[in-house]
Design a protein around this nucleic acid. Structure first.
Lengths: 340, 340
DNA sequence: CCTGGAAACGTAACCGATAACGATTGCAGT
DNA sequence: ACTGCAATCGTTATCGGTTACGTTTCCAGG
């Protein structure tokens, strides 16, 4: 049986304590102008009735709610890591966090849901929002910080140094002697996907290796999107000797497909990812990847949002976090092993 | 620069369309009693102004909001998996999801925050809540479904068959010839922790092996809690030949400590976990564990909550999902290898 | 022409809480 | 005793949207 108590409202407390709702409100919020005796009465009434202020009613009336919002488009490892960073930054800061997720996440989903959620939240519920992987720029009443924004966005955002990271990754492969290096791209509306591809192209060009468009597969950061692309690359008569995937999730799928097709990694094929999600350290072989601290991304975004909300902003509105190459066991010199 | 538009309210739309807010509301909610011409006018005004109804205002007035809540105590892999199942169950159901997380997650946190958040949400914002790892029974206005509730709870809940799972796990070790089997327990206020310990004891007793209390370490499901416990067990002059941990998170820490102390798994030590989190398949060696589909747990909980909210409930209020043993590489016969 | 009734729409109360404002009281200063 | 000020507390407008109810409009039928 479900215990369905009538909700205890402020006026219930007021009636029980023999005061007005205004006084109760003052007591709840610790405002000035209530005698100690009254405070005690009200507190005891609150205690007895088990009153909790309604988040909704409060936020409707108040401008500040001390609640920050987060809108994400899915819940992969990526998001979970970001979340941990956000929580850490918010811990004991007085800000609570609301994550809003819509039910159309799977299936055909309407383009504008992020904007819709944002306006619905920022209306009054939250003091500001963090958006993970958005589709565009947003109009809101309250501040928004984007993690990995769309290309060309000028909104406050936190992002990794994707260009440098991707360049380093491909240079690593080139250094091992690879010349035919495949690439699996991310969702190209995102700045990160674009920069990673840029890094790939730049590293090749600098090394004097021509960019072969047929070695580039167009994924969308969704791990599943990489499977058919990897299959195509590896079933060619002349498969690449290495594949650089724009995300670890996709790189892990490449490993899967490689195993399935009888490629031994790293003997027959080298694989490099991007992100360094926890799983990447645990696979067999361990995935060489570009570390971007998603935890840090979340942490910085939350810190940035906090100061935007409290109005003490004095840092650049675009934070770029460094990346670093983590070499594990999925990369080795190519089979021919002709060191340049 | 942050674009701070004044929020577009319903009365803005009403003014623009030359009608009353009541009419706008009727149009927005598709109610009867508005002429086609007026509907068109209002719609166009909405379009032009970019109006979105405020979640807060709506939920304050309405009883139903079509938003479900989820309150979790942390964001481990466990929670992320549950979340995916919840999202799946809610996909295209018309229900949105709000996850509420408080900022005191790290650090000393007050016992009652789950209750506090629950009442704040259930006040008006949500039609019902899913609670992951609660401390107790809850008083709310709206339905609550618990995942892995506290011991003795009679509230609607979804839980794995922990007793059977744990029994099977220990029987697996016994079958391999282990007799000195250590156990690292979970937070004992939870039904799951209790059942898993029961399974451990039951399997030993059935096999005629006496339960040695000194082989039982009291963890709390937090991975970190397992580290010192594993150290104590493995640094004894007579360490157990196998350790069963009540969660994968803790089991992975056991592997870590084992490696650190020079134990080779599974040669010197067999390890079994419980949960089958994604990481467990990827470690080296792969962790033998009891699979409980956390995805399924979330999925069923959401399904249950949905029907509770819509009032079409006709299933038992406590769902028990089956578990199964997943044998990987972390278990083997003990070193002495005296097959019974 | 009058009436009945349904369709269309506006008015205002309401949800729970907050805050500006006004009213009351107590007390010190003169 | 009178004034002034501060402390205390109630009244009420307000946030944005929903809905019960009342009003107006309009057309068909008598």
């Amino acid at each position: 049986m479900i215990e369905v108590n009538a909700p205890v409202t402020m006026s219930d407390v007021a009636r029980a304590a023999g005061v007005s709702t205004a006084t109760v409100s003052r007591v709840v919020n610790g405002h000035y102008g209530v005698s100690a005796r009254t405070v005690a009465q009200v507190r005891s009434a609150i205690e007895q009735l088990g009153y909790e202020s309604s988040l909704v009613a409060t936020s409707l009336r108040r401008s500040r709610t001390n609640v920050l919002g987060l809108v994400a488009h899915s819940f992969q490892s990526y998001t979970a890591e970001v979340l941990k960073g956000v929580m850490k930054a918010l811990s004991r800061s007085g800000f609570d966090l609301i994550i809003y997720a819509n039910s159309d996440l799977y299936g055909s989903y309407s383009e504008g849901w992020e904007q819709r959620h944002l306006t619905r939240l920022s209306g009054t519920l939250t003091d500001g929002c963090i958006v993970v992987t958005p589709w565009g720029d947003f109009r809101t009443r309250t501040p928004v910080v984007a993690i990995d924004p769309v290309r060309g966005s000028t909104a406050p955002s936190v992002i990794s140094d994707n260009l440098a990271g991707a360049t380093t990754a491909v240079e690593h492969l080139l250094g091992l002697g690879h010349r035919r290096i495949g690439f699996i791209a991310g969702r190209d509306s995102l700045a990160s996907a674009w920069s990673r591809e840029e890094g790939y192209r730049a590293a090749l060009t600098t090394a004097g290796v021509p960019v072969d468009p047929t070695l580039i597969g167009r994924g969308d950061f969704n791990p599943e999107s990489a499977t058919p692309l990897a299959r195509v690359l590896l079933q060619r008569p002349d498969p690449p000797s290495a594949i650089f995937a724009a995300s670890d999730g996709m790189a892990l799928k490449v490993l899967e497909v490689a195993r399935e097709l009888g490629f031994s990694v790293p003997r027959d094929l080298s694989v490099v990812g991007f992100d360094n999600i926890p799983e990447s350290a645990l696979t067999q072989p361990g995935l060489t990847t570009v570390d971007q601290s998603m935890y840090q991304l979340g942490y910085e975004a939350a810190r940035m949002l906090k100061s935007l909300v409290t109005g003490e902003w004095d840092e650049p509105s675009q934070i770029v976090l460094p990346t670093s190459l983590v070499v594990r066991d999925s990369t080795a010199p190519p089979k021919g092993a002709a060191r340049p």
